[in-house]
Design a protein around this nucleic acid. Sequence first.
DNA 1: GCCAAATGAGAGTTTTTTAGTCACCTTTGA
DNA 2: TCAAAGGTGACTAAAAAACTCTCATTTGGC
Lengths: 160, 160
Amino acid sequence: MQLTMTGEYAIRAMLHLASLPPGDSTQITEIASLWEIPENILRKIISQLAKAQLIFTQRGIGGGIRLAQPADKLTLLDVIEAVEGKIYLTKCLIGPDFCSRTSWCAVHLVWCEAQQKMKEILSSKSLAELVAINDFRKSQVQSLSSSQANGLNNIELNYS
Amino acid sequence: MQLTMTGEYAIRAMLHLASLPPGDSTQITEIASLWEIPENILRKIISQLAKAQLIFTQRGIGGGIRLAQPADKLTLLDVIEAVEGKIYLTKCLIGPDFCSRTSWCAVHLVWCEAQQKMKEILSSKSLAELVAINDFRKSQVQSLSSSQANGLNNIELNYS
DNA sequence: GCCAAATGAGAGTTTTTTAGTCACCTTTGA
DNA sequence: TCAAAGGTGACTAAAAAACTCTCATTTGGC
């Protein structure tokens, strides 16, 4: 019940691409070193993202990768589903074969609702928006830590 | 990113217990055969549910298991967390050690929201309510299939 | 006290999934 | 033709999940 490293890495890479000026490209090795991703693994992830048509790739000298769609049209859900396949919170949501009780089971309905809501939230913000929020919050963290001597309150994080 | 069989089995067992008259108990073997659960596995799950104080167990002749709390106070979230531990949709939601960017990362916030919403939905209905819905829907399915010759529309299932 | 019926618990196995590695292939521009 | 980029498949290692087996413990009734 957890995002895999593949999904995690894909998100990092796409977020990096989304932070570049539109149309700009970069290299796999660059992303791998900046975002702590094993290069061989990133290669395969990039290949999957290209097959899902989220990015363009170009081989050879001067080549690299870049977004195939505007950063404000892409969401976390797009990225995750591109590398992990469609999200199914339970096996019974894949299809009616898993469980003979699906036709009347109330638990199925609850999972269905949870899954739908989760997809909604994962697609509620574009990569462009996420990059913008990051930039803003990063600058906040910096100004906070530089004025740490003042004892200003830190940013609140929620590990419920 | 999916419920394990352990969680699935635990839910089946708890739903069965919740469907009994309050205070009634039953045996592991009974639940295992009724709900298609390997008995040895169910033993351990039952043991976990007991440690989490969701059920009472009693050994010996005439023993068995029963709910330790009223069925309308228990939710799917209780059951899942009892056997699978707390739900964390990503590693960075477990704690700040996984990722150095947590303090400002917008993706973290989105996952946080998704996780919170998912927990909300999983605890929005009590086991008692789920049992009641099941009973109602089962009777609907039966009356539908007995009048199938009329070509009545079937219950709609959503595999988005 | 003994027996049978019930849960409890630990070690170990098998299977599946995830993560990562390695070696080599293909494309491409200078 | 070379070097720099991405592409691919086979493989291994590690972790998690699912399951099996065996024996221990508790308990009520005879």
